[in-house]
Design a protein around this nucleic acid. Structure first.
Lengths: 225, 225
DNA sequence: ATTAAAATGTCGGCTAGATTACAATTCCCA
DNA sequence: TGGGAATTGTAATCTAGCCGACATTTTAAT
């Protein structure tokens, strides 16, 4: 791929704003690039060399498979998010893969070792990076405490609010979200059974607070959700 | 407090191994130091200036209070652990405090701003720091997935195993843990009600796999727990 | 168009574990 | 050395939401 294009792919990520043109060039040389279509599965843990990924376009979900073959959604990664060995520490056995949710995605990646070297030469970048990882931790902690103290319905509402805020198109109090998740996905994200999620969504639809279909979710009034 | 003593307090923390004597001296100058006795409460969020803390001795629990006044244990901090604004980002409203569990504790601290400056001058330190934060995130993720997929009994067993591994004194397969937690504490940590925790512990005691009292927990055989 | 595979809708039984409510211990300290 | 507070023990209820078992609808592929 053209080096110049790579440059722009990185340039617009807030993490790399602090870098000079020259430093950026260096990063681009070690950068990998990949595109994929909906439904494709991208393996990124264990087998391969550890990498850090930046999602430049689209949405993916990170799925973990446990000993019994059960699949759990670990994370939804959106445009601009980082994923992979964020902790800078290879963790052996975790069995995870990424599945493309949107029509297509573009992904940049670095080898963990290369990235570490760049961090060592750019303390400012290291600091920004730590903050991004920290932010991620904070979000995880938050959903963790929701899981403990809130019931399924509240969790669904919180999830929808969050989704609407991040990606919805708001007109007045009405918000339209492009829906690339199935109800099974949503259920897994808010940690409940598919049946419960379906029921809750239908309840909300019956009450008129919501309009659900496979293409989009329309929230009548985000303030009263 | 004596600067030299401070030096040694920091010196034996793995995070600071990479620093030169001179750099360490600098850190010590900006370092705060505090001791406290069992039961004391240490406020550290919101009100005060943001800080990073290193627990040098003893155990504390981090407790969060929500709008309704419910207390939840967020974390158990042990000797050598970091706590406070680990994300390097002040987060406004979270209402947390630390309570001393062991007989007494010693705590070092830095202003967040000072620490950031030191990180900027020591990229290696920044990298180590990121790894520590990352490790913490990994642990949180882990207990998160336990919470989802495992029942209360399994969670208790996992917690006990973890505790035993970190702090227990092992002789053969028998492990003795110094017990500074109440059953209410344990219940909160594994996210269940106090009654359920009590019941599970008594069941295990009846089966002879365990011996619980307020001073210590004796696990008959850690391999079959 | 045909059909198989996903995704969604619905229902009743079942259970882990929360909740409420006390009783019995043990600890702490004045 | 007593007495109040904290901790632990036990039991009876109650319920959110999981699970199994379908029917129905939508989508995609041949």
């Amino acid at each position: 791929m053209d080096e110049d294009l790579k440059y722009w792919y990185l340039r617009d990520h807030k993490l790399f704003r602090t870098l000079s043109f020259k430093q950026m060039k260096q990063l681009c040389i070690i950068m990998g690039f990949k595109e994929a279509k909906k439904g494709e599965i991208i393996y990124f843990s264990s087998s391969d060399v550890p990498r850090i990924f930046v999602l430049k376009k689209g949405n993916i979900k990170i799925v973990a498979v446990d000993e019994d073959g059960n699949e759990t959604i670990k994370d939804i990664i959106k445009k601009g998010d980082l994923f992979g060995e964020l902790t800078l520490e290879t963790d052996g056995e975790s069995n995870e893969y990424a599945k493309v949710l949107s029509d297509d995605v573009a992904i940049c990646s670095f080898l963990l070792s290369d990235f570490e070297e760049v961090l060592l030469k750019n303390p400012g970048l290291a600091l920004s990076y730590t903050k991004i990882v920290g932010l991620k931790m904070k979000r995880i902690k938050n959903s963790y405490s929701n899981l403990i103290s809130k019931d399924a319905k509240t969790r669904l509402v919180l999830f929808l609010k969050d989704w609407a805020e991040k990606e919805g198109t708001q007109t007045g109090n009405k918000v339209i979200i492009e829906n690339y998740l199935t109800q099974t996905d949503i259920a897994q994200i808010i940690c409940t059974s598919r049946q419960t999620a379906t029921q809750l969504l239908n309840e909300m639809e019956a009450k008129g607070t919501l309009l659900y279909n496979r293409k989009e979710i329309i929230i009548a009034d985000i303030t009263t959700l």
